[in-house]
Design a protein around this nucleic acid. Structure first.
Lengths: 116, 116
DNA sequence: CATTGGTACAACCATACGGTTGTACGGCTC
DNA sequence: GAGCCGTACAACCGTATGGTTGTACCAATG
């Protein structure tokens, strides 16, 4: 599994963004896609600016996007971002399964080896 | 989805650990579970100690574990760690789906509302 | 058009992180 | 048991990160 540098950076940003509990909670809340930055900020024990930064990190990672409604900017989770992360984890699990299969195959092909 | 603090910290460590390309590559290589720290280190353009630190981060996150073979310590990926991450992403996608379902339901129940 | 609500961004600070080198320790091998 | 291989860890350094406060900008509202 060779990962081109650009894709690797995308993965860095996605997993890096998800490595913070506040940001994961923003992702969860933004699934409904109804709150602006100020409303989101009201849920957390930190300044508006701090939450704004978290949102910016999520946006750069492609996990959410903003869209203007009146003077608010509503944050909505981007399903594709989540799926990108999930696909990579799926791929690792697939490699795991392939390894197990290979070991099973070895045992089947040369069962007597174990006794030599 | 209320996440207890301890679990949240686990998720911090898991996603945080995956937010680095070198560490993701170690996870991938360690699926085969054959290499010690020194062998792993030989693949990357950094010191042995740096790789050792990366392995320690992965270990604390529960994504790999070490097991002694002779004087080596072989690193093996822990499937459960990967699954923990995947389950959280699955949960987000499920919330997404539920939201879409709710919206569909609203449209079905009150189709004429849209015209008022 | 003055005001207010919502957002953006710069400057700053403390701490965490990713890397380095150097030293020490445990376990094969001779 | 001397020496070497593989690992562990401490100390250090530069930069990134997560937080703060303060200022500035737009857009709806009166």
């Amino acid at each position: 599994m060779v990962v081109p540098m650009q894709i690797a950076r995308d993965h860095d940003r996605i997993f890096g963004a998800l490595g913070d509990a506040t940001r994961r909670d923003i992702v969860r809340r933004a699934i409904d896609g109804e709150e602006g930055v100020a409303q989101l900020a009201s849920h957390y024990p930190m300044s508006f600016a701090a939450v704004q930064k978290h949102v910016a990190v999520l946006e750069r990672a492609g996990l959410v996007h903003k869209h203007r409604i009146g003077r608010r900017k509503v944050i909505r989770t981007n399903l594709e971002g989540l799926r990108t992360a999930r696909r990579l984890l799926d791929r690792y699990e697939e490699l795991w399964r392939e390894r197990v299969d290979r070991m099973d195959q070895l045992l089947k092909e040369a069962p007597k080896e174990a006794h030599r």
